[in-house]
């Protein structure tokens, strides 16, 4: 199955991003395809390469970047939501790209299922 993923919460404050990540890893392991992961609302903060959690904690942003590198997953950050929150090209972690909300709607159209992770 081809999945689209929507992440609506930032890292750490909510479990949404962790759950989305775990879902994607599990889906890939089962041979499913991930059409795109779209980051919206505070979810755009997942793309901030400046995040620096304590060393004994997971680095959520780096986990997403590694996933993109290993599996070619398309990680898209909403431009309007990102600008509102100071997420710009210069602080974007590897594997993420900034684009418009049209990419979310398109994921809804192209994927077999769009799964929303939020509050």
């Amino acid at each position: 199955m081809k999945f689209g993923i929507l992440v609506n919460e930032g890292p750490y404050q909510h479990q949404a991003s962790d759950s989305a990540y775990q879902f994607v890893v599990a889906a890939l392991a089962k041979g499913h395809e991930i059409y795109r992961v779209f980051f919206y609302n505070d979810g755009v903060n997942n793309a901030n390469r400046l995040v620096e959690p304590p060393q004994d904690d997971r680095n959520i942003t780096q986990q997403w970047s590694k996933l993109a590198a290993d599996h070619g997953i398309d990680l898209v950050v909403c431009v309007a939501a990102a600008l509102r929150r100071g997420i710009k090209e210069e602080i974007l972690a590897p594997g993420f790209r900034i684009s418009g909300l049209g990419q979310l709607v398109e994921a809804g159209i192209k994927a077999d299922r769009l799964v929303v992770f939020g509050d």
């Binding site: 684009s99 418009g100 049209g102 990419q103 159209i109 192209k110």
Partner: peptide
């Protein structure tokens, strides 16, 4: 909004 252009004229 590149996604919009991609969809235009599509057969979905």
């Amino acid at each position: 909004m590149s996604g919009m252009e991609e969809n235009e004229g599509g057969t979905d």
